[in-house]
Write a protein that binds this DNA or RNA. Sequence first.
DNA 1: CTGTTAGCGCTTTCAC
DNA 2: GTGAAAGCGCTAACAG
Lengths: 347, 347
Amino acid sequence: MPTIKDVAREAGVSIATVSYVINNKDGAVSESTRKQVWEAIERIGYTPNVTARNLQSSQTKLIGYSWHRVLPGQVNSILDHFTYYLAQSAEAAGYHILTFTHDADNWESVYTDLIRTKRVDGFVLSDTQYNDPRIRFLLDHKFPFVSFGRANPEWDFAYVDTDGRHGVLEIANYLIHLGHRRIAMIAWPEDSISGGYRVDGYLEAMRKAKLPVPANYIWRGVHEVQTGCDAMEYWCRLPKAEQPTAVIAISDLIAIGALNGAEANGLVVGKDISIAGYDDVPLGQYLRPALTTVRQPIPEISAMIVRLLQAMIAGETPPKHRILVPPRLIVRNSCGAPTPEQGRSTD
Amino acid sequence: MPTIKDVAREAGVSIATVSYVINNKDGAVSESTRKQVWEAIERIGYTPNVTARNLQSSQTKLIGYSWHRVLPGQVNSILDHFTYYLAQSAEAAGYHILTFTHDADNWESVYTDLIRTKRVDGFVLSDTQYNDPRIRFLLDHKFPFVSFGRANPEWDFAYVDTDGRHGVLEIANYLIHLGHRRIAMIAWPEDSISGGYRVDGYLEAMRKAKLPVPANYIWRGVHEVQTGCDAMEYWCRLPKAEQPTAVIAISDLIAIGALNGAEANGLVVGKDISIAGYDDVPLGQYLRPALTTVRQPIPEISAMIVRLLQAMIAGETPPKHRILVPPRLIVRNSCGAPTPEQGRSTD
DNA sequence: CTGTTAGCGCTTTCAC
DNA sequence: GTGAAAGCGCTAACAG
């Protein structure tokens, strides 16, 4: 592999001049020299060594992204999708993504190591929580990062998130428009932050439509298929007149459970009951009935995250660093009507 | 961030001595000096700078893995799962994974760039094909790589793959043991290499059981849900006595299509017809009926790949560099009987 | 055993 | 405009 020295020798100039040329130092090199150098570069096939550049500029052009734990057979929602677009956005900005893993308990040593060995210039976080220790840690260490998802409102850090309140509000309005009046929701435990926003959207839509929300219309459970089954099981045991006619699941995974639970109780989804999800997981369109859900604009989100992170690495504090993007309702047929026009009554 | 110089000053030794200590040069440093140095390191909190080390040793400790294209809403089979374990295996070996993307047409410039800038020490490939240009390219450039999956048998390169022949052989034997005699297969186009091995397994099992394989019992199509639907559609139009009673889909994705197609034609899967898949995609267990399939031992495969690649980066040629691992049959209920004991007859 | 020194390949003052 | 030289932080001969 040729180095800058070889180019210098070949072009009959100093290595400094070569450096000026490849770094486009404006007007620092005469047109003729510049041409000679480029020709030499072409001739011997030279490309600057990234590691040497990085050492010199004390950067790495690498963004760390911790691949969240995936248990065998577990569903990975849309995060694999996110990873792809994140890498693509990073590349467009001259960066690469370094994916790393860690367990629930050793995350701190992994992050510490990455920072102290100067392995990466910054981090992208996803799957954030209230009091997320990683955010607290990076904030304390003043290390650049941007998260996909919010955490404690009082913490000041850069994030991009989908507006879950808005997303569920749209689903709820869609169901209300379809004629439903008894709409229930399957939510995550109360300590989930994104879960909280989504429930807010549900409550807001119900309030505006002046529809009642009995206490037992919000079922809470962990992010597992079983949660959806359990909720449906419960509601199906209610007297007919108290049963919800539509259910909003806080995630597609839980919606799948609800689908199963409903059918297990003899209900035909899309006819006897409407079920909507949230996330638009890859297989959602292949379920029977295909799942009506909400999709986050992942490509755009990835691009925003990289842009923010790049600014933070450069030491700037972008004025707008709390970004909320609206998700999009994907109407399929688990809520019956494939189009809002085909409304139906509940009784 | 403290450097090796700071440690040297703090410990009252030269930087070379510090380097010897942190690199564990055996017996090169006296016990007392070693201790002093470690104390100094602890005191000022020093960690070697990876970039500097890399420049010195002309390596990167980075393994490139091209994240394959994921179209919105498309199913990602088990490769996201693989990525996780690959990263984990790499970390255990002192490496990190650099995930990068490319389109169908610009892959060569992306690989060239990564190599010439010395961005990575080697590559891991997945989704390999016959005449895979990436393999040909890396072979020609003598750049270290290991692939997850085979290609042309005459090409000599390191790979780890699951034994698809063996996997499908097991499924077929399972179905035969259940009592099926008319077993069909939905395969990929003839130019698919892993597809070929899987079909071989099917043919071998049928031959050994002396069961006929009519020409129209092998349906070929691309890796899409629709292919499964099309195949079922076709077989359901056959006279009853010629219809297969069991279908092996070459992938879970296609099996999902077959499931849909069967139900669309009024068949109850697991009762009127048995359908098996291959891959064990995350959602397979949540389908109704849950999909009987074959699972590849991803964690073990990842570890083997990293081990091989590490040897190749070190310039060694591992004697055993064509590794085939047997996959495991996962019996659920899309083939009726949850256990082989509950066999059933076909007529 | 320990220190001096010469790079790894590149960028960037600072002279000329 | 161009080049000499000083590093970025570290490793590894080579002396002593």
